[in-house]
Design a protein around this nucleic acid. Structure first.
Length: 492
RNA sequence: CUGGAUGUGGCGCAGUUGGUAGCGCACCUGGUUAGGGACCAGGAGGUCGAAGGUUCAAGUCCUUUCAUCCAGACCA
């Protein structure tokens, strides 16, 4: 089985695609720009979902579900919002097919044209706010904290597995509050949930910050983001949390009677992360041998590969493995005993490596005689011979070590690729090398746009919890005064 | 939408100046193997993206068309 992966250094895109395919995460589908997420890839997504979902619920958020289709009239109520999404919407115009009169296949029945077209949701703000209008009458009804796990469709011109697909899975939270402060706090709380998840679960050292006005969500007053650095030095927006002000409340006329009897528009937030997180995971941690999964997210944390020549040896090894497996599972560790009799050990080693399983245990007659076992770790590819007795404790500790090591490695990489830059000429060449540049910015959209036009670099965020750099300086492009540095990078 | 490229067994590819399709991997059978992607022997599987044209003869030449990939443009 050919599983060679193109080295990162040769073609980063190809390297990424290879890992997606060869680690058995996803494949291309018959529909342009849409992918099939395979069981192994989906299992990782399910782990992400369960951890995030728990974190959401701890903050009082409840899950709900809203329609896939949005009447065109709903969608066009918020002017900025529609401007942001209009170019990439799938539209339902008919509701029936009929046999082709010329006998070949089926055609759309022209008589089944919808009076009002339906938009396949690119995001659900509009349909949700049309519903919230009926839910909200009094200050006692607030806050409303809903999240939905669903798919959305954005007809992107160019797609890439996980990073940008025409259809993708995500969660979108939509909250309604009585005051601006409360809404802003909610928005901050949720970006905090994302940052904690990215760092502790995905081992991704993200930077939290505000988006510049140019990069904000269509219809938001403020957008908070977690920005990650990929191994080619490019930035990836991994999650966002928006303070929507009263824009949607006003567009959908959502008002409530306040304690003092006055009628007020509610304040809103929305926040989301998507299967793009899987793309971030792949690009941040993988190496040229394949996927590297942080133990917390790995569907299989430990794989056992038996080595034997005879049936007697096989039975003895499998019996010992089954015993260890029980002990590991008792500690909550997910274990796969690869007892396939048709494949050789070397093949299995390579296969599980491509799939990113954090720990591999190999056991053969030689080990049984010596009372030892071989434990290999995916992140460093190191192998150790350890005592069979108590190996479950060793493995449990190792999983924690690996989780931490993957994070530390990514953090060291990120920090090695962040630098300050105060000279425009230097900026133009440095930014092309990848990595983040911390530069002064005068706060204007014009400057930001000019820099983007000249270099393709955008302001990834105005950091609030790492790389914070509040100091007086002069804008790298315009030379105007600045109160602090922001993060510039070329992004996915 | 702009460039560039590619469509040939499941996957990856070769196929000279046109002569009726081949290789590697995977698959099936049998055997030997087994501590880093095994080996030997045998076997099955394709009207070469689609449509039309030139020709005695088209995977190969011409026209049209469809699809995909890469780089742009685009993208909360």
């Amino acid at each position: 089985m050919a599983k060679e992966i193109t080295p990162r250094s040769e073609n980063y895109s190809q390297w990424y695609n290879d890992i997606v395919v060869k680690a058995d995460l996803a494949e291309q589908s018959a529909v342009r720009g849409c992918m099939v997420i395979k069981p192994y890839g989906y299992a990782i997504w399910e782990k992400m979902q369960s951890i995030l979902d728990k974190a959401f619920k701890e903050t009082g958020v409840q899950n709900a579900y809203f329609p896939l289709f949005i009447p065109k009239s709903f969608f066009s109520k918020e002017a900025e919002h529609v401007a942001g999404f209009a170019k990439e919407c799938a539209v339902v115009t008919h509701h029936r097919l009929m046999n082709n009169p010329d006998g070949k296949g089926v055609v759309v029945d022209p008589d089944a044209k919808l009076e009002e077209e339906l938009i396949v949701r690119p995001t659900s703000e509009t349909i949700i706010w049309s519903v919230y209008k009926n839910w909200i009458k009094s200050w006692r009804d607030l806050p409303i904290l809903c999240n939905q796990w669903c798919n959305v469709v954005r007809w992107e011109m160019r797609t890439r597995p996980f990073l940008r697909t025409a259809e993708f899975l995500w969660q979108e939270g939509h909250t309604a509050h009585a005051t601006a402060e409360e809404a802003q706090e909610e928005s901050k709380r949720m970006v905090g949930v994302y940052a904690k998840f990215a760092r502790e679960t995905m081992a991704l050292p993200v930077i939290v910050g505000h988006k510049s006005p140019n990069e904000r969500f269509a219809g938001a007053l403020d957008t908070l983001t977690i920005e990650a650095m990929m191994q080619d030095g490019k930035a990836l927006q991994a999650g966002t949390s928006h303070f929507l002000g009263q824009n949607f409340a006003k567009s959908f006329d959502v008002q409530f009677a306040d304690k003092d009897g006055s009628l007020q528009y509610v304040w809103a937030t929305s926040w989301g992360v998507s299967t793009r997180l899987l793309g971030a995971l792949i690009m941040a941690h993988s190496d040229d041998n394949g996927l590297v999964l942080p133990p917390v997210l790995a569907p299989i944390q430990v794989v056992m590969v038996p080595i034997y020549k005879t049936d007697e040896e096989r039975e003895a090894v499998l019996a010992k493995f089954t015993e260890i497996k029980g002990k590991l599972e008792a500690k909550g560790i997910s274990v796969k005993l690869d007892d396939r009799d048709t494949l050789r050990p070397g093949f299995k080693f390579a296969e599980w490596e491509v799939k990113g399983v954090p720990v591999r245990i190999a056991l053969g007659a030689r080990d049984l005689a010596a009372g030892t076992v071989e434990v290999a770790r995916r992140d460093t590819l190191e192998k150790a011979t350890v005592q069979l007795e108590g190996v479950e404790g060793y493995v449990e500790e190792l999983l924690g070590t690996i989780q931490k090591n993957i994070y530390d490695k990514a953090l060291a990489f990120r920090d090695a690729n962040i630098r300050k830059c105060d000279d425009w000429e230097e900026f133009k060449t440095e930014i092309q090398k990848g990595g983040f540049l911390l530069c002064h910015w005068d706060g204007t959209a014009e400057t930001e746009q000019a820099i983007k036009d000249a270099t393709k670099a955008t302001i990834r965020c105005i950091p609030v919890d790492s790389c914070v750099c509040e100091e007086e300086g002069r804008d790298i492009f315009s030379g105007k005064p600045s109160k602090g540095r922001v993060v510039f990078a070329i992004a996915y």
